[in-house]
Design a binder for these strands. Structure first.
Lengths: 191, 191
DNA sequence: GATGTTGGCCAACGCTCGTTGGCAACGTTA
DNA sequence: TAACGTTGCCAACGAGCGTTGGCCAACATC
């Protein structure tokens, strides 16, 4: 993957980071279209032209800002019997502590590049997990997609649409309800 | 609700309808920001200023274009044992034949008004269904939200993000997998 | 047939957007 | 000290947006 030479530290690294952080916030809050480069630059305390210089254009900025790692636990560490609860808990944590996920969800719905990135994220990171516990090999993609549908659906209701009862549920409550669903999607016999 | 006098048929009804149809298509395909009034007008074969005349402004147009009825079956007709399968099948039908739902999902994610409308839609139409079959009265909103999370999540994966395995599943397959989930969210004991 | 109403287009407004190019200040290197 | 790449700001561009107001033809009403 990483075949670049050691990245020489630049004097502008702080600015680059500030832009990225502001971009993540704006994309998460407003979606792709309404998150303007001008607003992001203002948040970062620099000139809009700097954004162009460092990230080429708006698409490049989003690509950089949506670099993401789900940090899914390793395969071996996964207890097969409780994988549903572990996964739900993990995703709740990630979503609540990383606004990039909300940004991806917001942008993925309106922007083709965002949708593709989201799809790839799940294919690259959730699929291996599913492959590790799923009984039937050729069903792995479908089962991973089912898991994604429930996880993304809860994220949508809770963090984006903010449907009141979904927001009002406690973390443990969400886990208790969703874990059996995920568990079944991954490990149960085909219906 | 409907306390207006009988609406006198206007000569411009055809134009109004054409605008609305074009708007629904554009909102569904592009989301709120990128669906421009100019493009909608061009699709409808009229001048952009007509849109303003008939719907006031862009928000008004969206409000009119996203008027929606989930057409959920009546309470009495619902077989309690199979309510999960019935609901999933019903939503798949609705989503595949009415682009307004995709439009609402796209817009609801970026636009506050869209999100509110989507929340209200579910509260007004899904909540009563849940109330009819849910064992514990005070859990009705939460259970309805859980149902919404799975239904919306599948719609997101299948019709908006177009995650390949989700798209590739047959209608019956989706029903077979999701029905038990919905059934449990609505009728099972609290976990 | 005159008069008011409706349905439509055209041209333009003010604004914001992404993006560009030039120019000054700074730090490094020679 | 001179040359140079880096970092930043400023001003402006062209385009597209939502929106407005005026004008004209077709229709309705008397």
């Amino acid at each position: 993957m990483n075949s670049e030479p050691p990245p020489a530290p630049r004097r502008s690294d702080a600015t680059r980071a500030a832009i990225l952080e502001a971009a993540r916030e704006r994309f998460a809050a407003d979606g792709y279209e309404r998150a303007t480069i001008r607003a992001i630059a203002k948040d970062a305390g620099i000139d809009p032209s700097m954004v162009m210089r460092y990230y080429g254009n708006k698409e490049g900025l989003f690509a950089a800002a949506s670099e993401i790692d789900l940090r899914l636990p390793a395969l071996g560490a996964m207890p097969g019997r409780h994988i549903g609860a572990v996964l739900v808990a993990h995703f709740l944590d990630r979503w609540e502590h990383d606004e990039v996920l909300t940004a991806m969800l917001r942008v993925g719905v309106t922007n083709a590049a965002g949708a593709e990135r989201m799809t790839e994220m799940f294919r690259g990171q959730l699929l291996p997990i599913a492959a590790g516990v799923c009984p039937v090999r050729e069903e792995v993609p479908r089962r991973a997609a089912l898991v994604a549908s429930q996880i993304l659906g809860m994220a949508l209701a809770r963090y984006v649409l903010r449907i009141p009862p979904a927001v009002g549920m406690s973390r443990d409550e969400v886990i208790a309800w969703l874990a059996p669903t995920i568990q079944r999607y991954l490990t149960a016999e085909s219906p």
